[in-house]
Amino acid sequence: MVEAFAVASGKGGTGKTTSTLALGMALAEDYDVTVIDADTGMANLLFHAGLDDADVTLHDLLVDERDAAVSDAVYERFGLSVVPCGTSLAAFEAADPGRLRDVVAELAADTDVLLLDSPAALGSKSAVLPVVLADRIVVVLQPTVPSLSDGLKVQEYAHSYGTDTAGVVFNRVRPDENVDRIAEQAGRYFGGQTLASVPESDAVRAARREGKPLLAHAPDDPAADAFREAAARLDVRDGDGREVAERFKSAVVPERI
């Protein structure tokens, strides 16, 4: 059983990495979950997962000359299999985004749920690839005009590649914001369902400083509860891991940009 979700927003600052790890930890209660930092240009999942000093990262798997095995870049942390990405610009430039397909295919063969933390941009092939490869996207939004507008854009990109929307998470919601009304309106344009409204929380920043996912740092925080609620509403679809792996392998992605 496997389904790959790209956690996407189109805009920075919505808390996508926090959301990816929180959803991952919540889903790990029931599934075997692998989280991949597919934001190869501006990786930061490693800082959130205490993997700052990881020797082998996704970058090593995306560079031709390096002879790293996929399993070398998988770290078991917080009940998840985590594939961090490095932060070196040189490695990013040497990376071949097309190889992400093979990495995802190999990881898909062996897990229930794949979560791809996607770049907050749509301007390059490497930024769009996670959305191309995923089965569905989870859109992380803030209740603001720019965030909704960018979320709509990322959704259209995803749909163009046949990737549906699993649902929407409203994140960093302030107490004075009535997200019910906004969610109801937004539901007319976004696919899937509203998964949760996650309140803005100081615990998120504290977790990041500590290098732990929110659900490990402050499991009782209201924001953590909201992410668990989101994960419970996400209807992970059954699939055959091998079939999915095969599909990734056969996805036509040219070798170089």
Binding site: K125, V128, V132, H159, S160, Y161, G162, T163, D164, T165, F170, V173, P175, V179, D180, A183, E184, G187, R188, Y189, F190, G191, G192, Q193, T194, L195, A196, S197, P199, P222, D225, A226, E229, R233, A251, V252, V253, P254
Partner: peptide, 29 residues
């Protein structure tokens, strides 16, 4: 990436016809 574009991209999971019957209520707490 032409070859991976969906043929019927315009119809993909259009929220407009999803009715939102199962749209979840939101409880910030």
């Amino acid at each position: 990436l032409d070859d991976v574009l969906a043929d019927d991209a315009d119809d993909a999971d259009d929220a407009d016809d999803a009715d939102d019957a199962d749209a979840a209520a939101i409880d910030v707490g």
